[in-house]
């Protein structure tokens, strides 16, 4: 019951937020929260460190941008096309990467994402260094004009909530339980008769698709898809958001994304603008050395011990 009340409060806050806070910033926050939550599905629950999720985020950004701008698809369909293409890319990269474990998995995903990055640089449709600019926001369901930031915010909120619900559902389903079992002890899960490769691949594809959903939505918000979205720095950032918020917790990645996006926004306008990568690196090192459970994980541990 308490939990339900908590969700209700968060929802009410999310609905009221654009009255107080700049909606574009909130939309950015939501997109990255969804991106990090999708990533958490594979790292937190599957135990697989993907260092290539920027390929899905950035790839979907480009494809939905192209679908909206050049093909003139309706906004919802354009976002869907982006997310699904990220899923297909996830299937291709995932099939290769799950052939190796642990550290090699990370290196393979990183290398494949770098390859995708080079393809994006040299493909004419992405606009190279300039990116894909002037993507139209269009209308929601053919009715609501999305050029209005408030309207756009509620549209993005609906998409991201759907994404979060899907992730929460997946984690608490039998599928999610098996996935955690594989993370904790691969050999035991295998001996129980689970086809662990299929579980890992399904989780990877789901994670890639939702990361793509976040990237595609971000493109509509900013009307721009650029190389930054697909660069390996982006893959690193999403790892950091998830780690900082708390691996394998439902709320952690969103909290982590909130902290990092707010920090970046805050630093970008100050004298420390050029030091952003260094600040992120220091947070990374601190997290790994002394804060491995993340904000939400540490909080949960604290509550568990005190009550």
């Amino acid at each position: 019951m308490n939990k339900f009340l908590g969700y209700l409060i968060v929802l009410a806050l999310a609905l009221a937020a654009p009255l107080v806070i700049y909606p574009v910033f909130l939309m950015k926050l939501l997109c990255f929260a969804l991106f990090a939550s999708a990533f958490n599905l594979i790292l937190g629950y599957g135990g697989l460190l993907s260092f290539g999720h920027a390929a899905f985020f950035g790839g979907a950004a480009y494809i939905s941008g192209h679908a909206l701008k050049v093909w003139g698809l309706p906004t919802e369909l354009g976002i869907l096309v982006g997310a699904l293409s990220a899923g297909v890319l996830g299937l291709a990269i995932g099939t290769l990467a799950i052939r190796r474990q642990g550290i090699y998995f990370a290196m393979i995903t990183l290398a494949m994402a770098q390859m995708a990055y080079f393809v994006f640089i040299s493909s004419p449709f992405t606009g190279g260094e300039n990116g894909l600019q002037g993507v139209p926001r269009g209308t929601a369901l053919g009715l609501i004009d999305l050029t209005n930031d408030r309207a756009m915010y509620y549209f993005v909120l609906a998409i991201c909530l759907a994404g979060f619900l899907l992730i929460a559902r997946a984690v608490h389903s039998p599928f999610g339980q098996v996935l955690s079992a594989i993370r904790d002890n691969e050999d035991r899960a295998r001996s129980l008769g689970y086809d662990i490769e299929r579980y890992k691949l399904l989780a990877f594809v789901l994670s890639a698709t939702l990361a793509g959903l976040a990237g595609a939505t971000k493109t509509v918000v900013f009307q721009l898809a650029s190389l930054t979205d697909a660069h390996w720095h982006m893959s690193g950032e999403v790892v950091l958001m998830t780690l900082l918020g708390g691996l394998g917790t439902i709320a952690g990645p969103a909290v982590g994304a909130g902290i990092i996006v707010t920090l970046q926004n805050y630093l970008a306008s100050g004298p420390l603008a050029a030091w952003v990568p260094v600040v992120l690196g220091v947070i990374f090192v601190t997290c790994v050395l002394s804060f491995r459970r993340g904000v939400v994980g540490e909080l949960r541990e604290f509550l568990r011990r005190s009550f």
């Binding site: 690193g236 790892v239 990568p277 992120l280 690196g281 990374f284 090192v285 997290c287 790994v288």
Partner: peptide, 12 residues
């Protein structure tokens, strides 16, 4: 992850 953070710090 730790060495990734170090790389960001050094290169940045």
């Amino acid at each position: 992850l730790l060495t990734f953070g170090l790389a960001l710090v050094i290169e940045g």
